[in-house]
């Protein structure tokens, strides 16, 4: 009896965790497929299948452009930070030099910077070099959180690779750049996929910088675009369209996360990440 009660209790807990995690997104999908007055009835199960909201968000306004902006920013950020991080991680993990400990601590400290602390200074800098309202401002600003993270995780990963793999190359007189590109890069790809993915998610989701450095509707990224989606009047919030837009920008992320689930969990625990 006790065993059965325990099992039931345990599975109830499992069920609770499942519903807790999935329900809000399920409900967003459900809402996004409703149109007209159906939107304002509370439904727990799908009642209609209308793509009107999706058509709305993808054809009216600049939302497709916002998606494109987000893709450009996130991809560029990932490529640049991975490039800078791989070479830096090689130096930090494989070569002993004076000041390395201090440098590592500085990188750790930068990763903990509150974004608001650099907001005023970054705004002034971006404005004075004429990058205000351009995607370059975001690509540049996002380095503050992607670069320390990628450097850190790749350093940890490279450090754990055995010494022997580069010994032969050093004896053969290969230059450090050749060592990095020919020997480490092929071994590094699992770590690079993980960190790249996490950096992509972080850049895709960022809000404060995107809100501050871009004021042009055509140049906005999706989080700001969704936050500012509004209806014809102040009171009339277009919930159906907002939910459709939300589902559109979230589904690719969820697919990525589910496909790379194992890698992400190992990256999370090697780093500790919140998106």
């Amino acid at each position: 009896m006790v065993a059965i009660a325990k099992r039931t209790g345990f599975y109830a807990l499992v069920a609770f965790i499942l519903v807790f995690s999935v329900f809000p997104f399920y409900y967003a999908i459900l809402t996004s497929l409703e149109s007209g007055t159906a939107l304002f009835d509370v439904n727990y199960l799908p009642t209609e299948f209308s793509l009107a909201n999706y058509r709305d968000v993808l054809t009216n306004g600049v939302f497709p452009l916002n998606i494109l902006n987000s893709v450009i920013v996130a991809v560029t950020v990932v490529v640049i930070s991975l490039f800078l991080a791989v070479t830096a991680a090689y130096a930090l993990s494989r070569i002993s030099f004076r000041g390395r400990g201090l440098l590592l601590l500085t990188i750790l400290a930068v990763s903990m910077f509150p974004q608001i602390a650099v907001l005023a200074g970054l705004f002034e800098m971006i404005r004075s070099v004429g990058l205000y309202n351009s995607l370059f401002s975001l690509i540049f600003a996002y380095m503050i959180f992607t670069l320390p993270f990628t450097v850190w995780v790749l350093t940890t990963f490279m450090r754990d690779l055995p010494v022997e793999i580069e010994e032969a190359a050093i004896v053969d007189g290969a230059s450090p750049f050749v060592i990095v590109t020919k020997i480490f890069l092929p071994l590094m790809w699992p770590a690079m996929v993980t960190t790249g993915l996490l950096a992509f998610i972080a850049a895709w989701n960022e809000f404060l910088f995107a809100l501050t450095f871009v004021s042009n509707n055509d140049t906005r990224t999706v989080p700001v675009a969704i936050a500012l989606l509004s209806g014809a009047s102040e009171q009339e919030i277009p919930w159906g369209t907002i939910m459709a837009a939300s589902v559109i920008v979230t589904v690719p992320l969820i697919v990525l996360v589910l496909v790379f689930q194992r890698k992400i969990v190992s990256g999370l625990t090697a780093g500790g990440v919140k998106g």
Partner: peptide, 29 residues
């Protein structure tokens, strides 16, 4: 499956979660 499901809230952009919940917590609907 549960381990995968648990990752969903984490993967959703904060702004999207805010909007989703704002809708769920709407006073009338």
């Amino acid at each position: 499956i549960v381990r995968a499901a648990v990752l969903i809230p984490w993967a959703i952009p904060t702004i999207v979660s805010a909007k989703m919940w704002a809708w769920m917590m709407n006073d009338q609907f």
